[in-house]
Structure formats: C-alpha cells, structure tokens
Design a protein around this nucleic acid. Sequence first.
DNA 1: GCCATGATTAGCCGATTGGCTAACTTTTTT
DNA 2: AAAAAAGTTAGCCAATCGGCTAATCATGGC
Lengths: 111, 111
Amino acid sequence: MANQLDSFFSALSDPTRRAVVERLVASGPQAVSDLHSAHDMALPTFLKHLKVLEAAGLVRSEKAGRVRTVHIEAAPMAEAEDWLSRQRRLWEGRLDRLDALVREMEKGSRQ
Amino acid sequence: MANQLDSFFSALSDPTRRAVVERLVASGPQAVSDLHSAHDMALPTFLKHLKVLEAAGLVRSEKAGRVRTVHIEAAPMAEAEDWLSRQRRLWEGRLDRLDALVREMEKGSRQ
DNA sequence: GCCATGATTAGCCGATTGGCTAACTTTTTT
DNA sequence: AAAAAAGTTAGCCAATCGGCTAATCATGGC
C-alpha cells in the first residue's frame, strides 16, 4: 500500500480489527490467544488480522517463550485523526466564508 | 458493509477517494467530469470511486441536465474522527494512570 | 434534426481480502 | 520422554476491488 494513510484507514475499516484496537487501548497488552478468544473465527484467520494491524503500524508484538504479546502503537492513529480534523476545519472555514458572503449580500440588499 | 465506520474508513483508504474529498472540501461542489479531470483513469473507473464515497455518505450529488454536481457531506467524517479521538483519549488516560503508578512505586521505594 | 458532450451501464480481468482446514514448530508441563 | 499449549505456515476458496473497453442514454448547441 503506497501511502501511510491508505494502510491505516484500510486496517481500521474492519470491525474485527477495530475491536482489537479498542481492546488493546482499553485493557493494555494481551497475548494473541487472549485477544483471539473474543472472536468467533479460526486462529489463523485472526492472525491475518493482527498482521494487517501490525503492517499498518497500529500494533506491535513481542514473543516470549511460546506466547506473543500484542500492544497498541497509538502514535500512527494521530495521523488519521489529523487528516480528518484538517478536512473538518477547512470545511468549517468554507462555511464561515459562505456565511460572511450571505451576510454581505443581505446588507447590500437592505437599502 | 455492516457498520457505518466500516464504509467510512474503507472509503477513505483509497488515495483517489481521499483526493476527491480534499478537493471538494477545499474548492466546493464540482461536476463529475471536473473532478475526473484531475485523475489519470477512465471515467467509469472514477465513477465507481464516487459511488463508494456516496454509499459511505461522505458525498452527495444532484444531476441537472446532463451534468451531475458532487458536494461533500462533512457530518459523517465527524463519526470517524470521534472514534479515533475516543481511542486516543482512552489511551492517554491509561498512560496517565501508568504514570501515577510509577510515581507511586518510586515514592514507596524512597525510604 | 444532428452531433458533441457528459454520464451511465455492462461486462471482463487480475489482485487482494477474509474466511477455512490441515499440518507443522516451538515451548511448557507432567 | 510424551503430551499439551501457543503460534505459525501453506494452501484452498469465494467475494470484492480497482482497473479497463465497448456500448448506450440523455441533454444541449448549432
């Protein structure tokens, strides 16, 4: 995937993966099988989701013995949030200017 | 797509579609072919992207004569932004509690 | 009335996605 | 040493995605 935003948004477009992120944020680092236990799918399928999250940089993991522990990497989420809020601010700016224009026109037509 | 967030994030995971959103936010409503002119792909391909955006509720369009004009629908973007910022706040809250715990432990070990 | 313009529909194609099972490896536990 | 637990790898499958061309429809200008 070319852009960072591509893989971030794409990773978050799946409800299983958002649930994993939510759980890691809410309850801290978890083992793969603990995370898996909340989802009704085969483990290899679930592992693929984790790999997508890891490839997007949203999550990291370390293996100790036979247990792999996964934790959130919150920083990249800020990037997506920034994009969205930048668009929102631009959009609100447009509305303000439109507003001003309307007021200007009303003032003009008032005499 | 089941969830609203699914289709929002999925719609925004493509650079062409983000570019369309950016342009509509920055420059206001545009005709389909005006939007298309900025992208090096066949018109039917581009139309599919617009349909994805429209299905996600990020964009609306009206046809007048033979021209279809597309405009942004900013409200749904707030939903994705909210999800992200909620996660960030929860995450920061965890960090704060962790911080407090570390300070507590340091205080304990100090005598 | 005809032609150009703007958009749309239908259908093809290869790559990716999200699911599965089966088989295997590595580490603990007994 | 054997068995159980935790992951991992390989490979299959159907559905979706993002691209294309060709053909069609609808409207506007001449």
